[in-house]
Design a binder for these strands. Structure first.
Lengths: 215, 215
DNA sequence: CAGCATCCGCTTTGATACTG
DNA sequence: CAGTATCAAAGCGGATGCTG
């Protein structure tokens, strides 16, 4: 990207991460830290392979990511954020928060990847951290995800758990509306979300229902 | 901009503000709210006039800014952020914070506009709000700026004040280093910064000197 | 003069094909 | 798997011209 040549911190930041796709690459790495080239391609549907290669090179030059050639057993390259790259998390968080209202319009033909749930759900809190941790399996797109409470926080990872406290199945819009606070559980169910198991587990992490550990 | 077509809040946000120049236009409007077309051009050195017009149209369509045709006495168009547009402030703040380390390298031929001081200085706090407010005149680029304490916060506006508690003169790098906490006042002076008046006034707002109201 | 629109050369991006 | 190569299309930058 051609520099803005402005002595302004925001402009300098955009000189580095203002290119098309760049911040989305950082998003992928924030979600699933050690990442192979093909993992990135999968998490960035629509990116051209030459652009991905270009951007990775630029990010490496700017000290945002590192490229590690793994030893023979795996024999692959893994990309990782440097501390400087992880410091971009607040930027992605701010952008994500601002973009939430835009999810409602035109859910048309937009692609969704289950692991993207980690970004908005990572900001949720366990409303009853003194209770035993809960696990919720969320089935909404390419792969099932496990949403678990850990030390009052919420972690998201791919996987299945037959002993999960609850299992949620639904389209990405309904699932996200539930976890972003747009609707309560009943409304989500009326809109096609299917819940199996303990509704209280969902209430533990869903936003501002004031009946925390009810049921 | 072509949409990323991803059902992800951050990607949707970038669909709207991810274009080149777009976030810098928002920066300008965050700093000096009602803005004319030519004011924007001045605050965005290097932008092509057709791009500015394009971006303003897109931002208007997306509900980020409004265009008001002022009544005959002034006979000009003024651009303003909507509440939705002002909600982008955290995005610019996060970008700016991340970009601070980039200011040190290549201060080469980068352009500077004094009113940009408002962004980083707006995050400073008055360390002694119980004392009477202070005013500092900062002369560093195209126009003198007044930095004043108001209710524990710091406001920045263009202007001159012969009765300012202190006057600071210096290049943008030295002035910013001082106010961003890179160096203390003595070091800044050794690097060419000229202070006239009360050093304590500067200490009131400069970051983490633990001698707050000293002298 | 303020607020654009048009034109044109250059750069970036997107899509696909191909390679160590 | 991790890219490079190629090429058409879109976007950008700079200059200039037009209109109230």
């Amino acid at each position: 990207m051609r520099s803005y040549d402005q002595y302004c911190a925001a402009a300098k930041a955009l000189d580095v991460v203002g290119d098309r796709w760049t911040l989305l690459i950082v998003r992928e790495l924030l979600i699933r830290q050690p990442c192979r080239y093909t993992d990135l391609q999968y998490g960035l549907p629509g990116i051209a392979t030459n652009l991905l290669a270009d951007r990775l090179r630029q990010l490496e030059e700017h000290g945002v990511i590192t490229r590690e050639v793994a030893p023979p057993p795996v024999a692959t390259t893994v990309f990782r954020l440097t501390p400087r790259g992880e410091a971009l998390q607040p930027v992605l968080a701010a952008l994500g928060e601002w973009g939430v209202p835009l999810l409602q319009e035109g859910s048309d033909q937009a692609v969704f990847r289950s692991h993207w749930l980690a970004l908005p759900l990572g900001h949720l809190r366990d409303h009853a951290p003194e209770h035993p941790p809960v696990t919720i399996e969320v089935r909404t797109a390419d792969q099932p995800m496990l949403v678990r409470t850990v030390d009052g926080k919420v972690v998201v990872e791919p996987g299945t758990d037959p002993r999960a406290d609850a299992t949620i199945t639904g389209s990405p819009p309904v699932v996200l509306e539930l976890f972003l606070g747009g609707v309560d559980l009943e409304t989500a169910q009326a809109q096609g979300l299917v819940l199996e198991g303990d509704a209280a587990a969902v209430a533990r992490i869903a936003p501002h229902p004031d009946f925390d550990t009810a049921t």
